[in-house]
């Protein structure tokens, strides 16, 4: 018999002490968020309270302890007030919410049947289909958007094919339209809708659908009564994963959109780099964050109350 009573290799948890180790593990992501989200946001918020000046950096300091200062705190809400005064910002925010909302809905309508199909296919086919969903990520996002420009342009492949087939006489205006923006956003973000939907649909007990049918539900009723409500967590997760990045999307409306497809990401870029109005740009960013965070917080509150 071997002697197994030799000294055991200590585990990391024992090395550091259980409690310390646990706090460390929990603390690490919080520290990360603090360092790379909260601190930068604090800086952005600080800048949004300043006045723009022509200097380096291009905004006034928040604290001024100089001898000539009227007060040590130098904060102004003028930038936020300005956002409400100029139509441009209203339109940008509204357009962003509209485009992101419609894109999310399109992703859901297209992604749901796809996710359902993947979840119900045989394991081998399923892996191939999932691979196909993830595959686009292997190419740069920017490259894929540029590819759409090549496809949709006046002398692009789509127009070329259509005129070759004799279906059109003059090339269609597809690039630089709202439609191109929707196409770009749906194309880019649909995997984020499919994957969480697939995860919930795949877990679902198929007996529940049979049971509903057994109790007299027609196929569409089976879907409405069981499949749809039970896949709600996936729908919500997928919608958030599409809506949030789509709302702040900058590249797609810039490259594929026309003048009228104004989104807040582009406005922000213009304020920051073209007008060099850092405080106003910061205010735009802060409001965007509030628009995103408040609905999510309200939603989570309602979910917790449900439980």
């Amino acid at each position: 018999m071997n002697d197994v009573s030799g000294p055991k290799k200590p585990r990391y948890s024992q090395l550091l002490g259980d409690k310390l180790w646990r706090n460390f593990v929990i603390g690490l992501p919080y520290f990360w968020l603090f360092l790379f989200f909260l601190v930068p946001f604090g800086i952005v918020f600080k800048i949004s309270l300043a006045d723009p000046i022509v200097a380096q950096p291009p905004f006034t300091a928040l604290f001024d302890f100089g001898a000539n200062a009227k007060s040590w705190l130098h904060a102004t809400f003028d930038n936020y007030l300005f956002l409400t005064e100029d139509n441009l910002y209203w339109i940008s925010y509204f357009n962003s919410i509209k485009i992101a909302g419609i894109s999310t809905l399109l992703c859901l309508l297209l992604g749901y049947p796809m996710a359902y199909g993947i979840a119900r296919s045989t394991p081998t086919v399923r892996n191939v289909l999932l691979m196909l969903v993830i595959l686009p990520f292997w190419t740069s996002f920017l490259l894929r958007v540029y590819a759409w420009m090549g496809l949709l342009g006046k002398n692009g492949m789509v127009n070329g094919l259509l005129s070759y087939l004799g279906l059109i006489d003059a090339p269609l205006e597809m690039l630089y339209t709202n439609g191109a923006v929707y196409l770009g956003i749906v194309y880019t973000y649909i995997p984020f809708m499919i994957l969480p939907l697939y995860a919930t649909l795949e877990k679902m007990d198929l007996d529940l659908q049979d049971a509903a049918a057994d109790l007299g539900a027609k196929p569409w009723q089976v879907f409405v009564d069981t499949t749809l409500p039970l896949s709600m967590p996936g729908i919500i997760a997928g919608s958030m994963l599409v809506f949030i990045p789509a709302l702040g999307e900058f590249v797609i409306p810039t490259l594929l959109g026309g003048i009228d497809s104004l989104m807040i990401g582009r406005t922000l870029y213009d304020e920051f780099f073209v007008n060099r109005d850092w405080p106003l740009a910061s205010a735009v960013a802060t409001v965007l964050l509030i628009i995103l965070v408040i609905p999510i917080m309200l939603f989570q509150r309602s979910q917790q109350e449900k439980e």
Partner: peptide
């Protein structure tokens, strides 16, 4: 859904 038959599933399949 049109059969005069109902079933109790092994998993119970309670909604």
């Amino acid at each position: 859904y049109d059969r005069p038959i109902n079933m109790m599933f092994q998993s119970y399949a309670v909604f």
